[in-house]
Structure formats: structure tokens, C-alpha cells
Design a protein around this nucleic acid. Sequence first.
DNA 1: TCTTACATTATAATCGTTATAAATAGTGTA
DNA 2: TACACTATTTATAACGATTATAATGTAAGA
Lengths: 147, 147
Amino acid sequence: MSEVQLKDALDALKSTGVRITPQRHAILEYMIHSTAHPTADDIYRALEKTFPNMSVATVYNNLRVFRKAGLVKELTYGDASSRFDFVTHDHYHMICSDCGKIVDFHYPGLDEVEHLASHVTGFQVDYHRLELYGTCQDCIGKTAKAQ
Amino acid sequence: MSEVQLKDALDALKSTGVRITPQRHAILEYMIHSTAHPTADDIYRALEKTFPNMSVATVYNNLRVFRKAGLVKELTYGDASSRFDFVTHDHYHMICSDCGKIVDFHYPGLDEVEHLASHVTGFQVDYHRLELYGTCQDCIGKTAKAQ
DNA sequence: TCTTACATTATAATCGTTATAAATAGTGTA
DNA sequence: TACACTATTTATAACGATTATAATGTAAGA
């Protein structure tokens, strides 16, 4: 089924006049198959074997292309580097403060918050971002053992 | 009333064994009186006149001290640099995508989301972050005029 | 006063990201 | 096919925010 996603993404790109290079194909493929939310460097290192000459700039350039096409979202958390998330359907992120693991979860949406905020601030609201922080099962286990 | 906030903050710091230096006093005071959400550099430049010899590192060091003490929150958006927010009471941020203005607003809390997420992911949830993005009245006006 | 720990300063280093210029490859047209 | 044009990649340098380091200064306690 991720094959379908890949095909859709490639079609979407083509239709906006963006060329499908081997590098772009590989980056997209990697992002779709990766459940983690990789950094630019993660992607770069993962594709090093297949594209020994690929530059980091290529990764960044193409992530920007994908972002502009709406295929990818950039997640800027407290960490040093941005993480990138292939856009499938609306979901939120649960982030482990210990190990940085990110797990997706769904919630019926926060339209009500958007309406209230729009009313109170006078802004025209476009979208929102929500992240929850906590500790994952693995890290809870580790801490318990350590004590 | 912001005087009270300042006094409370200073007391809170003292009680954790942190010295109140003139620089720390000034940084806290600036943050409390500033309605914008300043970057480290904003603070540095604002205090340049009063402390001509102060180093940028001092600002960063002390922002970290304040953050650890729970007095200040660090906001990492897509922008290059972090913004810092003096913690008063729980509130969310409405951010203008055009001019970067940040307006606070209140909402009864999203405890339900936290519960659901905890249940689904198995995480122990500590806190969450929510930001809305859109266009402020000023920028809506400007765009309308430009056309 | 002496000692010790904490703070600040000045500066260099680090690291993620972006800009630049040259090389390469694809696309359309005659 | 050959050519010109444009997009893309590569390699490298530059940038800017943040952090680390070492030296200096300052406060508090014995």
C-alpha cells in the first residue's frame, strides 16, 4: 500500500512540473517506508550506499521541494535539527522526552479551538500544530530498572 | 502587577540557590514587560545600553537557568532562532505566518487529548504544545490593499 | 581574610542549514 | 541528430544560532 502512496506522490510531483530524479525517488521512498521521522542527515546517511556521491544539499533541496508540494511536513522541535514527516492523513505526535521517539496518534480534530482562537484574536486561522510530550514504555522500563 | 511577577520569579530563583545578578534581574524584567516573545538576540540588544559588556553567552546561559527553574519556556518554531516566553499561566499561541506576530489566547485545556493519547500510545504524558497559524488583521488588511 | 563555588566575559568551536558556482543531465525544438 | 535551454546535482564555502572553553571577576561562608 505504501507503493500506492509513492506512486501518488510521484504523480503529484510530475503534475507540478518537477522532474523525478533517482535521488528524489529514493528520498521519497525512504520517507514513506520509514516509520521514524527522519532528519535530513538520517536520510542522507541511509542513501549513502546507493548514492555515494549525493550531497547533503540535495537532500535539503529536495525536502524543500517536497514541502512546497505539500508532500512533506517539517517538524521543528527543541532538538537541534528538523525532522521530516511524509504527509499521509492528519495526525498528531506523541514525543518521548527521553529518547526522542515519535509515535503518531489520531484525534478527531480541534476545530473548536481554531474557531475560538479566531474569534478572540481576530486572526484568520489556517492550521494548527499539536504535540504531546512524555515518556515511552521503553524508557519507563529503563528508569524503573535503573533504580 | 508585573512587579509582583518579577518578585515571585526572583524569590523562586533564590529558593533554588541561584544568585540574583544584575544581568539576571534585567533579563527577567525585560521578559516580563515584553509582550512580544523575544529571541535571545532581542534580549541581548535590548540590554546592550545598560550592560555594554554583557556577552551573548550570558543571555543564553541565564535563559537556560530560567528554563530549568520553570520560569521560562523555549519556543522553537520553523524560524531560525528560538523565542522565549515568560511562563505566567497556561496559554496557547496564535502565530501570524506573514509577519511572525504572536498573540496569546486561552483555552480550557486539552486534558482529553492527553488521556486518549496516553491510552493509545502507552506513553506517560507530561505536557503538550499547541500552536495555531494564520494571518493577523494587519496582514489581512495589507494584502487587501495591495490588490 | 582566605577559600571556594558560582557568574560573567571574550572568544573559539560546533553544527544544521543555505548559498554559490561549476558540472551534469534532461527536455524541447529546428 | 544536434543544439540551446533549463533543471538538478554536486562540492564547497558561508552563515547564523547556540554551546563550549578558559580566564577573569564576584559573592558567600569559614
